[in-house]
Simulated scan of single mutants.
Amino acid sequence: MNQHSELFHSINQTSRHYSKLLNEKLVPLGLYAAQWSIIFLLKRDGALSQKEISLYLGVEAPTMTRTLIRMEKSGWINRATGNDKREKMIQLTAASDNEYPKWINAVREAEEATLENVNEEEINGFLNTMKKLKNNLE
């Protein structure tokens, strides 16, 4: 197997294992890793359209709609009509703001466990590489 194939296989497998660990930490708190990605994005960027979230996360519209409906039923987000009647704007609720400290602590536990024996220089180099890979995919 060539090194390029090994790299992409490794990225995929590491992502799967990390998602599993993240779910183990978050599910007892009422959240899934896929939902955490949306919470993280909204916390960082503020209210976004459903389309913007889908594009950023690389998730198909029907899957995103199902996830957002579940999150709305759980009380974590509000979906409101945007400038265009077809556009749905998504924002965090007060309930999610209240739970956020628990969620971020669980996420940080998963991150720390995953980054054990990895130094800041390695993290920065990997981030730079990932940015280049992502830019090539856009």
Rank of each mutant, 00 (worst) to 15 (best):
L137E: 14
E72H: 07
G46T: 03
R86L: 06
E111P: 00
A95Y: 13
E112Q: 10
G30S: 06
I69L: 10
S15P: 01
E6W: 03
G75V: 09
G75P: 10
I38N: 00
N128Q: 12
N105D: 15
M64W: 02
A61L: 09
P62H: 10
T63G: 01
N124T: 03
T67R: 14
Y56S: 12
R70E: 12
E72P: 02
K51A: 15
E60P: 00
E72L: 02
H17M: 09
I53E: 03
L137T: 14
N117E: 08
A113S: 12
E111F: 05
G75M: 08
S49Q: 08
S49I: 08
I38G: 00
R86Q: 07
L68A: 02
A47Y: 08
N78R: 14
A113Q: 14
G30N: 09
T93Q: 03
N135L: 10
N23F: 08
K132C: 00
Q13D: 13
G58F: 05
N2F: 06
K102A: 14
L48N: 02
K43N: 13
I38M: 13
L55K: 11
A110K: 02
Y100L: 14
A34W: 01
N117P: 01
P101T: 04
E109T: 13
L31W: 04
L31Q: 05
P28L: 08
G75K: 05
L48H: 04
W36Q: 07
R16P: 01
Y100F: 15
K132W: 07
K20N: 11
V59N: 01
S15E: 14
E99M: 15
I123L: 14
L133H: 08
G46Q: 06
N23M: 08
L48D: 00
I39M: 09
E122P: 01
A34C: 03
M1V: 13
D45W: 05
L31H: 08
R79D: 00
K73M: 08
N119H: 08
M64N: 03
N124K: 15
I77P: 02
A94K: 12
A106T: 13
S96Q: 07
L115D: 06
F126P: 00
D45N: 14
A106Y: 12
W36V: 00
L42P: 04
R66W: 05
L26P: 06
K73H: 12
A47L: 02
E6Q: 13
E99C: 13
K85G: 00
R44Y: 03
H17G: 05
L41S: 06
H9W: 05
L127T: 08
T93D: 07
Y18R: 05
L42K: 14
I11H: 01
I123T: 08
K132D: 12
F40Y: 13
S54D: 09
Q3E: 15
V118M: 11
P101N: 04
T14L: 12
R108N: 15
W103A: 06
E60Y: 03
